[in-house]
Design a protein around this nucleic acid. Sequence first.
DNA 1: CATACGTGGAG
DNA 2: TCTCCAAGTAT
Length: 364
Amino acid sequence: MRAELLAWYGDCGRTLPWRNIDNSYAIWISEIMLQQTQVKTVLPYYQRWLEQFPTVEALAAADQQTVLKAWEGLGYYARARNLHQAAQRIVAEHNGEIPKDFDTITTLPGIGKTTAGGILSSAFNLPHAILDGNVKRVLARLVALPVPPARALKDLWQLSEILLDPTNPRDFNQALMDLGATLCTRRNPQCDRCPCQAHCQAYNRNIQSELPMSETKGPLPHKQIGVAVIWNEQDQILIDRRKQEGLLGGLWEFPGGKIEPGETIEDCIAREIQEELGIEIAVGDRLCTVTHAYSHFKVTLNVHHCTHLSGEPQPIECDEVRWVTLDTIEEYPFPKANIHIINALRAYAAGQTPVDVVETAPST
DNA sequence: CATACGTGGAG
DNA sequence: TCTCCAAGTAT
């Protein structure tokens, strides 16, 4: 099966900018960006990143806000924070060289088993297996896995290791991923073009469309949030930088919080701002309403104009607070949901009517 | 072993 | 409109 797969890869493999290059730093960056993220999404970020941080030294020397700004919009921001930390460790502990040893490279933050295998095989042609989403799907079909892949990780890893071509692990791993990305897709797999068709249990039983089995998940919880755009007398707006840990760590946002049962939006906003920033505000008109879906819950941001009344803002529940103008706000990294608020603010400043931004309709 | 962690695209 | 999920890792 190796020969057929490698031959197919030679003919039909994708051309990607991080493929067949002699730059382990760039390959590392691509592997991190590609975690849970499609190639098409990564492409522009990857190009910009290498222009801005061409070497591991350049990345290590950058400040975190610059790094997060370059990552803005890609999601899973711990990846950017870990990339930055790992770069500093690679410079300090490994003379600026990406480690070639599996146990060493997996001690770096953000590099787990499959990313390590991806880097080591792609950058150095070392015989380490991978098990990403593509490979899980390909292998689940190959053996007609009767359970969801998450229930058989040990077996799938073993299979990936057994199949791996020890003489050409780089091309073999890339071929496996390309097969999953282009032919052995989640829906409508093109088995008629597949180099592994004869070996595929799912195809032989004609159950390729049913595999891999998926876990059933319930509906996402939906939270209502009150958000404040607080103006001072200099026409500045108050933003805060979220703590390093957890959701959107290190990014800036407009302050606010969860609306309690029976609480009005206005009461919620005034309470949250008092609790989190220690200041008094007057809650005014609605600016916009933004509904946004994260991976594990949905939120509706009920955004209101507010006026600063008294008190010096304190970073009680965040790492930092700052008054900014609409002209300089773009220097700060913001999560996607807040980008919508900034756009609404620009429209407001330009004299337009308030807008509702709805990405996903509220379910309740 | 289960959950937290973003965003955009496809059907 | 809504669900699923895509080059996963950390805890």
